[in-house]
Design a protein around this nucleic acid. Structure first.
Length: 590
RNA sequence: GGGGUGGUAGUUCAACUUGGUUAGAGCACCGGCCUGUCACGCCGGAAGUUGCGAGUUCGAUUCUCGUCCAUCCCGCCA
């Protein structure tokens, strides 16, 4: 074969006169009759190679019938281009390779889509031919960025004395949290392994073992419904440390994040990230992963409602609900139609019953529900909520959950419509002081908000029995531009406290022993205080790559229905395989 | 589980609102011409079960229902 002496991105004027060999794909072909230009591509770049019928007839005759994406090797001489033919857009644009000899490695059938233009096919079509989409410069760049991010992470944690330890992919199914992917056992009839939702229990056991700084870049699996930023299998940077407190983890997580942003995209993040507690995050932004690149925080509105004659909202307050507002800057221009759209938006997606509004004139509020608010109250609103002339105030009154969910979504929707988000800004922050447990109305019991191994905040221990809902946990999330990119907690390292938490969560002794006995037993033999966190690696790379979906940074992603369009998994298996696994398919009766 | 949007040559889209002649165009593909292009250009050609199934109708790409797939969102995701 013709083995390459150079890649397709490196030849320059100073190589002129050299005889070289290039290997690559035919990316573009420009046929002038007797003179054919080819852009030859590999992952390093493109080089224009020239076939001249008069000079090298054999090579010309071969290239004549070749087309896009054929894989070839060419031997030729680097020549400086005539001045008027230099292409300053391309790094290799000052030279050509005059081809004397060509070897065809593989001819390509007509392409299902144009790999020079990622938008030349719909996403499902590109996913079907993912190996071709991966030829596009966007995905080549994304996977390179992903690789670099992993390298930086490994190097950073290695330098910090961490040890990467692999943990099992076949493990025991856990009762709480996301649905597990199950793997039937052949050797043990009727029994199943589960794929890890995270290596949580293993990394805690490694702390017991004395590996006081552990990390792993590891696949995790969750069988839930998917989104632009959620795949059935995804990658975490999993971290656990002993003899540390929350501040240590936040410090380490901050430094790792800063290093990643700095070394991949040259973005300098602040030395310390803002820290917001859970309740403030909820009150100010309506959710626990706020996008703080713009303002428009939620405003308390109940005091104004109390002084108004708007009985719909008064009764909301009487029934224990909340009324909050956001002030959309310079949006008094919104027509009835736009307001209706926004109303539908909060109704449809967030169960709001409606969307109240008032437009700000010169020191007065007009339209919408303004007539229910006396003039003095309007002035209070204008002052307290910092309303400017030309703004519009949107108000929602409902159960706290609906108010927060609808207003936080509306805040983002308006920011999008009004272009309030500067795409060059990075807004990292930590959210801390999550509640330890959350009341599950359907099941009539307390659920762990983070996971059942999360330590309560020791300051709140006195409320553990009387008022578990008010106990804060030592859990924390790291948020970037409205995406949760990581989270973790200080763990429980005492078998007694762990048992107590299981009791609160309604996990009986027998069940706890069966599911987590190994962990609780481990805590009997000298367990260090420990804690850690996990970063969503795909989401981090997605943000660094300036994408909005993690599929763009995963080599072979699945669709939102968890199908791989390329290899068509999941798929049927042979009856024999099912028998080996002691399985029988029960078809749903139609 | 629920809602929004989309599905028409290999591909990206048009025609559908108001059902009616032969379902059009760019790129790709095939043939021809062209010696400095880099979105090369020019001439010609082939290419369609309009996702699938049913219904309404004299007639359905168009209207209705169901279904499948993709995508975005709600629920869900310790």
């Amino acid at each position: 074969m013709l083995k390459r002496s150079h890649n397709c991105g490196e030849l320059r004027n100073e190589n002129a006169g050299q005889e070289i060999v290039l290997n690559g794909w035919i990316s573009k072909r420009r046929d002038h009759g007797g003179l054919i230009f080819i852009d030859l591509r590999d992952r390093y770049g493109k080089t224009q190679i020239v076939f001249n019928e008069e000079l090298h007839e054999d090579a010309y005759k071969q290239i004549f019938r070749l087309g896009l994406e054929d894989v070839i090797g060419v031997k030729g001489v680097v020549v400086a281009r005539p001045t008027e033919a230099i292409n300053s857009e391309m790094p290799t644009g000052e030279i050509d390779v005059e081809v004397r000899e060509i070897h065809v490695f593989n001819e390509a059938e007509p392409m299902p889509f144009n790999v020079n233009d990622r938008n030349s096919a719909s996403e499902d079509h590109r996913l079907k031919f993912r190996y071709l989409e991966l030829r596009t410069k966007e995905l080549q760049a994304n996977l390179k960025l992903r690789h670099e991010s992993a390298q930086i992470t490994r190097q950073f944690l290695h330098d910090e004395d961490f040890i990467e330890v692999e943990t099992p992919v076949l493990m025991k199914s856990t009762p709480e949290g996301a649905r597990d992917f199950l793997v039937p056992s052949r050797l043990h009839e009727g029994k199943f392994y589960a794929l890890p939702q995270s290596p949580q229990t293993y990394k805690q056991l490694l702390m017991v073992s004395g590996f006081d700084k552990y990390f792993q870049i590891v696949k995790c699996f969750r069988d839930e419904d998917f989104r632009a930023d959620r795949q059935p299998e995804f990658t975490q940077i999993d971290i656990e440390m002993s003899f540390i407190d929350q501040e240590d983890i936040i410090d380490l997580g901050t430094r790792l994040t800063r290093k990643l942003w700095s070394e991949t995209i040259n973005a300098e993040l602040p030395e310390q990230f803002p820290v917001l507690n859970y309740y403030d995050a909820l009150e100010m932004y309506g959710n626990d992963k706020p996008d703080t690149r713009f303002g428009m925080e939620l405003q308390e509105f109940s005091e104004f409602v109390q002084q108004s004659e708007f009985y719909a909202f008064k009764s909301v307050l009487d029934n224990g609900g909340r009324v909050k507002a956001i002030v959309a800057p310079a949006c008094a221009k919104y027509s009835r139609k736009i307001i209706d759209e926004l109303t539908n938006f909060v109704k449809q997606y967030h169960n709001a019953k409606g969307l109240a509004w008032m437009k700000a004139g010169d020191n007065v509020l007009e339209g919408g529900i303004s007539k229910f608010f006396p003039e003095t109250i309007q002035k209070d609103i204008i002052e307290n909520c910092k309303v400017n002339e030309g703004d519009i105030v949107f108000i929602i009154g409902d159960d706290a959950k609906v108010v927060f969910s609808a207003l936080s979504a509306l805040r983002l929707e308006i920011a999008k419509r009004e272009n309030l988000i500067d795409p060059n800004v990075w807004a990292p922050l930590w959210v801390v002081d999550f509640p330890l447990v959350e009341w599950n109305e359907d099941e009539k019991r307390w659920d762990a908000l983070h996971h059942p191994f999360t330590s309560p905040n020791f300051k709140d221990m006195d409320k553990m029995d009387s008022n578990p809902g008010e106990v804060r946990s030592l859990a924390y999330d790291i948020v970037m531009n409205g995406y949760e990119i990581g989270g973790g907690s200080i763990r429980i390292h005492s078998a007694e406290l762990q048992a107590k938490i299981f009791t609160i969560l309604g996990i009986g002794d027998d069940e706890a022993q069966e599911k987590f006995g190994f962990l609780m037993n481990a805590f009997k033999y000298g367990a260090p205080p420990h804690g850690g966190m996990a970063f969503g690696f795909d989401r981090i790379v997605m943000l660094l790559a300036n994408c909005t979906q993690i599929r763009d940074v995963i080599a072979f992603p699945k669709t939102t229905s968890a199908i791989s369009l390329m290899d068509e998994s999941p798929a049927n298996v042979d009856e024999k395989q099912l028998q080996d696994l002691h399985l029988e398919i029960i078809r749903a009766k139609s």
